[in-house]
Computed example of a mutant assay.
Amino acid sequence: MNREITNSIVITGLRKSYERSPGSDAAYAIDGISFDVPKGQFVTLLGPSGCGKTTTLRCIAGLEHATEGRIEMGGEVVFDAQEKRHIKPEERPIAMVPQSYGIWPHMRVVDNAAFPMRHGRHRRKGPEVRQRALEMLEQVGLAGMADRWATQLSGGQQQRLALARALLGDPEVLLLDEPLSNLDAKLRAKLRQELRSFQEQFGVTSLYVTHDQAEALAMSDTVVVMNKGRVEQIDRPERLYDYPRSSFVADFIGSANLFPVRDASPGRGGAVLAKTDIGPVLCARSAPGQDVQSHNGGFVCVRPEDVEVRPGGTGATPAENEFAAVVESSEFLGDRLELVVRSAGIPITVSTRASLRCHQGMEVLVRLDSTSTSHLAS
């Protein structure tokens, strides 16, 4: 009896090392990572440059040989270091959209799109190839450019062509390596919506690589945050933002104020009372799986939008989670005001309403919203 396949990709204990000088220890580009990509979902590998996300993608594609670990696709083992099993890239049920799009400059648009049908795993012949390619180009808005040379397309049009070509290979898994990074900000925002729409329309499992937090949060069902070759956290975008497991995740996903904790104890209602250099901070949130006993040390994390500001000075009495501060800088950004205030020598970033009147040197009180303030163990 065939078991139902719920995960299109299963990565187990994957390592990739690069030799240093003779006699020295190997350097790991990826170091024992494990995660699943559920069938039909959009999963993103997110992290800074050099964290191992592209190396992971290339191992999944078969373009790199991992040193250790195992990769399954659709229930089939395509790589197993221990058993010395390595399925060739062209035999894996994948299509890949690289950062440079990989468009053939000597071919017309329709021939670029038709390439995987003529030369891929599921080869076809005859007029149906061109007809199927034209239908796909219609869906991505390029039908009117089918007979142009690929070099006559704009960057955004080339990105759509690369996606159309990948989908015409009928892949079980679509691998995307920072395909929007060469585009300007406004076009990138538009195309990420289109890309997610296409993925949902065709129902293809997708694994996306980016260092752009906004892309990851906007497009993904699940985000795998990587750092120094290891997985820091795997979660839904909203959980990553609201419940980071570490100071690295908190600081990398969006913007965060991080205050080192000198000591901590249980507070009321299951909260944590953390002693910091700006004073005692009540934190209602903790990282998932973190118990009260692990609260000593670590960091208090509060997002700039969860910091309130009100006039301070003589006679102003701080309330709970409220601290006297002085405005260091004020930046008007149209829809909001970005402040940097300093309390007990500690800078705090604040994102507040644009109508607030603040100027450099002004004395204020800043309040950290305890319901949105987290304590992180590391």
Rank of each mutant, 00 (worst) to 15 (best):
R3H: 15
K16I: 08
R20F: 00
S24M: 14
A27W: 12
S34V: 12
S34F: 12
D36V: 09
G52P: 09
I60A: 06
G69E: 11
I71T: 07
V77K: 04
K84F: 01
R85H: 10
P89L: 05
I94V: 08
K125H: 09
V129M: 01
V129I: 04
Q139M: 12
V140L: 01
L142N: 05
A146L: 01
W149E: 09
L167A: 01
L174E: 08
D177I: 04
D184G: 11
A185C: 06
K186E: 12
K190T: 14
R192P: 05
R196V: 06
S197K: 14
Y208T: 09
H211A: 08
A214N: 10
A218P: 04
T222A: 06
M226L: 15
V231H: 09
R236L: 08
R236A: 11
F248S: 05
P260S: 07
R262Q: 15
S265L: 13
G269T: 04
L273I: 12
L273Y: 02
G279F: 07
F299L: 07
E308R: 14
V309S: 08
P311S: 15
A325L: 13
V326M: 02
V327Q: 00
S329N: 14
G334E: 05
D335N: 15
V341K: 01
T352Q: 04
L356H: 07
H359W: 13
M362G: 01
M362N: 05
L368V: 08
S370A: 15
T371I: 05
